[in-house]
Design a protein around this nucleic acid. Structure first.
Ligand SMILES: [Mn+2]
Ligand SMILES: [Mn+2]
Ligand SMILES: [Zn+2]
Ligand SMILES: [Zn+2]
Lengths: 148, 148
DNA sequence: AATCAAAATGAGATCCATTTTTATTTTCTT
DNA sequence: AAGAAAATAAAAATGGATCTCATTTTGATT
C-alpha cells in the first residue's frame, strides 16, 4: 500500500535524478515533493493547480516535463485515470506497487495489490517474445457506493 | 485470438444495436464493418481516414459517436494505445479476449492471451469490494525488433 | 404511397490536455 | 566571477475528442 506523504520516496527520487545527470531545479523538486504528498494517482492539472500558487510559481510546462522525466526513470507510473487525462503516482523503490479498480460511474479509484496476479504477469512476461519492463492492470466496474 | 475479418461479429453487433433501440444508419454500419475488418485495436482517426473517402463519406463525429455507443453496449473495448489516443477493438460475444504488449519505442502492439492471468483476475474480482465488469492488462517494454 | 416526429448524420466550431517554442533565469563547472 | 549548459515559465501551437446545429434518413402511422 502507498505510504502517506512518503518523504523517503522524495529523497529517493531526488537522488535518482541527480544520479541520472539532472541538475537540481526548483520546479522539478516541487513536483517531486507534491507527488510524495499524494498516496494515489494525481493528474498533471491537479499538480499544476497546487503548484501554480507557490512563490515562485511553478509553470505548467515544468510540471509535465518533470513528470515525463520521472516516468522515464521509473520513479512514477503513468496511467489513464479518466478519458483523455493521465494520472501519475510514485513508484516505490522496492518494486512494490499496486493497481487500480476504477468506478465507471463516479470515477473513484480503489488501489489493490495481489501477489497471485503479479506472479501470473511475471511468468507471462518471460514467455512472450517481448522484453517486458512494466505492466498495468485496471479493473473497471462499479464501486461499493455506485453498485445499485 | 482475434479472427480476421470477423463478419460474424459485425452481424452480432448490428443485431445488438437494433436490439438496444438504435435505428439502422449508414455511418454506424460502416464503422461496425470497419471494426470487423481489423483484428486488433484501431484508432478513431484511422477509422475516420478509412471512411472519410467513402461514398457517401462518413463524418468524424459519427465515427466517435458509433464507437462510444458500441463501447457502451460492450461490443468494443477501448484502450489507450499511445499517449493521448485511444484504440478500439471488437469484443467477441463468447467473452474470449486478449490483451496487449506495447513497444514503447516503435508502438507495435502484440496481442496475447493467458488463462492463468485471467484466472488470477477473476479470483481477485471476487475478493475486492467492487463490482468488476471489465479489466485491462497492458505489458510495456521493447518488442523483438526494438530490443537492443 | 404520403406524412411526420424522432433519430442519425456531417461539417465545422470548440474544448482541453499535452507539447512545443522561446526568451530568461539558474545551476554548476572552471 | 565568468560562461556554457540546463532549467524554467509564459504563451502559442497541436491534436484527439466532443459539441453544435442545420440537414437528411428512418420507420411508424395514416
Ligand atoms: Mn503489478
Ligand atoms: Mn483478460
Ligand atoms: Zn463509484
Ligand atoms: Zn518495437
Amino acid at each position: 500500500m502507498p505510504a502517506r506523504a512518503d518523504s523517503a520516496w522524495a529523497e529517493h527520487a531526488l537522488r535518482a535524478l541527480r544520479q541520472a545527470g539532472y541538475r537540481r531545479g526548483g520546479a522539478r523538486t516541487a513536483v517531486v515533493e507534491a507527488l510524495a504528498r499524494h498516496d494515489c494517482a494525481v493528474t498533471a492539472i491537479e499538480l499544476d493547480d497546487e503548484l501554480r500558487r507557490r512563490r515562485p510559481a511553478v509553470g505548467r510546462a515544468s510540471v509535465y516535463r518533470a513528470l515525463e522525466q520521472l516516468e522515464q526513470l521509473g520513479l512514477v507510473q503513468r496511467m489513464e485515470v479518466t478519458r483523455g487525462t493521465a494520472g501519475y503516482e510514485r513508484v516505490e523503490p522496492g518494486g512494490e506497487h499496486h493497481h487500480h479498480a476504477i468506478c465507471r460511474k463516479c470515477g473513484r479509484m480503489v488501489p489493490f495489490e495481489d501477489p497471485k496476479l503479479e506472479r501470473a504477469i511475471a511468468r507471462l512476461s518471460e514467455e512472450i517474445s517481448f522484453e517486458v519492463t512494466d505492466h498495468d492492470v485496471v479493473l473497471r466496474g462499479l464501486c461499493e457506493r455506485c453498485a445499485d
